[in-house]
Simulated scan of single mutants.
Amino acid sequence: MFESCCSPYDSAHLLRVRYGLPVEVFADRPYLTIGRTVEALGLPADLGRHVRDALAHRPATPVIADPRDRRWMFLVAPPLPYHRVPAPLQHRLLAHGVSVPQSGTRIMLPRTDGPGSWHWACEPVPGPLVIPHRATVLSAVRQAILQGADHVSA
């Protein structure tokens, strides 16, 4: 996908055009800033695989994996009207390794197709950005945790 990109600006442009992501370049890396248009949920990779599989019936849920494939970031749509994930729920999620980055947090986006860098664990569908609602992904997280998915070893 990134074979024609020579700079981080080329990569950012490709991510904007192909997927409709609100990409910025910061320190020569393409980033997405969490806010009122796009949020993220960070999961351990094992739990993330179960959640991704549970959401497989939907259009591709964009998921970014870190270079070592230990953490996955699910891109989600915040609720309307906007409200933050309540602190008690955040604490319960954190007990299972699930993080809810705050507004203003930068999420690194894939820049190359090579292994050993940030990459898509689940690539978005080309076209205007389509992401699931936060509640949909949180429901899948809850179900996976109840089924014991957060205790699966790699």
Rank of each mutant, 00 (worst) to 15 (best):
Y82N: 02
L146H: 13
M73S: 09
T33P: 02
A140H: 14
V98W: 03
P88G: 14
L43D: 05
H13G: 04
Y31H: 14
V141S: 10
R111Q: 13
H119T: 13
R68P: 01
A77I: 01
Q90D: 10
S139G: 15
A45E: 04
A65N: 00
V25D: 13
F2P: 10
M1P: 06
V76P: 08
Y19K: 02
P132I: 00
T112Q: 03
D66Y: 09
L94F: 06
M108D: 12
A121C: 05
R134M: 03
P22N: 04
I34H: 01
G148Q: 03
L94W: 04
H50P: 01
A135Y: 10
V100D: 00
H50N: 10
L138D: 03
V23A: 08
C5I: 15
L41E: 00
T136Q: 15
C122S: 14
A135D: 15
F74Y: 09
A56Q: 05
L47G: 07
F74R: 08
F26M: 10
V125T: 11
M73N: 12
P88F: 15
R52A: 13
P115L: 11
A77K: 08
L55Y: 02
S4L: 15
A121N: 02
F26C: 13
H119P: 03
R36C: 00
E3K: 14
C6F: 10
V76C: 02
L32N: 07
L43G: 05
R36Y: 00
G97Y: 02
G104C: 00
V100N: 01
E123N: 03
L129W: 06
L14T: 08
R16H: 06
V17R: 12
W120R: 00
P124E: 06
V23T: 04
S153A: 09
G127W: 06
D150P: 01
T37Q: 01
E123W: 05
A135S: 14
H83R: 15
A87Y: 07
M108Y: 13
G148A: 06
L94A: 12
L43I: 00
R58D: 13
V137W: 09
L94Y: 04
L129S: 02
L32D: 08
P30D: 15
S4D: 15
P124N: 02
P88S: 15
L21I: 03
R92Q: 14
V137P: 11
D113H: 01
R18V: 11
S103N: 00
L47E: 06
R70C: 10
D69V: 15
V141K: 11
R134G: 01
P22F: 08
V17Y: 04
V141C: 15
I145S: 06
P124S: 01
A54D: 13
A40Y: 05
L89S: 11
A77R: 14
G20A: 07
V137Q: 11
R70D: 10
M73Y: 13
